[in-house]
Amino acid sequence: FDIYVVTADYLPLGAEQDAITLREGQYVEVLDAAHPLRWLVRTKPTKSSPSRQGWVSPAYLDRRL
């Protein structure tokens, strides 16, 4: 999967189903980028939180090589 970094805090609107909150600087794996406005991502697990999966706007993501 492609690795992206979150460029700004992402707080989903209440109406968005299956969306997750992301923090600036967080790394995520993009699982599904087929839709231009919503990408399915999975967060990297940390010592304090397990990995999470949900939909985010790709405008908040920047690809890492």
Rank of each mutant, 00 (worst) to 15 (best):
A33Q: 12
Y4D: 00
P58M: 04
L37I: 07
H35K: 05
T7K: 11
S49W: 09
P12T: 08
I3Q: 07
L40R: 03
P12W: 07
L13T: 15
Q17K: 14
L40P: 01
L65T: 14
L22E: 00
R64Y: 15
R23E: 10
L22N: 01
R23D: 06
R52W: 12
I20P: 04
E29P: 00
S57T: 04
Y4R: 03
R63H: 13
E29N: 04
Y60P: 01
S57L: 05
D32I: 09
L40C: 04
E24P: 11
L31E: 01
V6L: 04
L11E: 14
A59R: 09
E24A: 13
V56K: 00
H35C: 07
R63Y: 13
A33N: 14
R63A: 05
H35R: 06
D9R: 05
V5W: 07
T43Y: 06
D18V: 04
D18T: 06
Y60M: 05
D32K: 05
I3E: 08
L61W: 01
Q26M: 12
L40K: 04
V30M: 02
V6D: 00
V5C: 05
R63L: 15
K47N: 14
W55K: 02
S48V: 11
L37E: 15
S51V: 10
Q17D: 13
K44W: 15
E24D: 04
L37K: 09
E29G: 02
I20N: 02
G25L: 02
R64Q: 14
Q53D: 05
P36A: 08
L65R: 05
K44V: 15
V56P: 00
H35A: 06
A19Q: 10
Q17V: 14
S48N: 14
L31I: 13
T46I: 06
Q53K: 08
D9F: 04
R52F: 10
P50Q: 07
D2H: 11
Q17M: 12
L11I: 15
T21L: 11
I3T: 10
L61C: 02
R64A: 15
R52P: 02
V30N: 00
A19P: 07
P12L: 08
P12A: 09
T46F: 08
Y10H: 07
T21Y: 13
Q53Y: 11
R63W: 12
D32A: 05
I3D: 06
Q26H: 04
A19L: 08
L13G: 13
R42H: 02
V41W: 01
D9V: 04
W55N: 02
T7M: 10
V30G: 00
T43R: 02
Y4K: 01
S57A: 07
V30S: 01
V41N: 00
P45T: 07
E16W: 10
Y27K: 06
Y27I: 15
L65I: 14
L40M: 05
S51P: 09
R38H: 07
V41T: 01
V6R: 00
R63M: 12
I3F: 09
P50L: 07
E16A: 10
S51I: 10
R38G: 03
L40D: 00
Y60L: 07
Q17P: 14
A59T: 11
Y27H: 10
Y60K: 03
L65H: 12
H35I: 04
A34K: 12
I20H: 03
D18Q: 08
Q53W: 07
R64E: 13
D32G: 02
L31V: 08
R52T: 11
S57D: 15
V5L: 09
V5H: 05
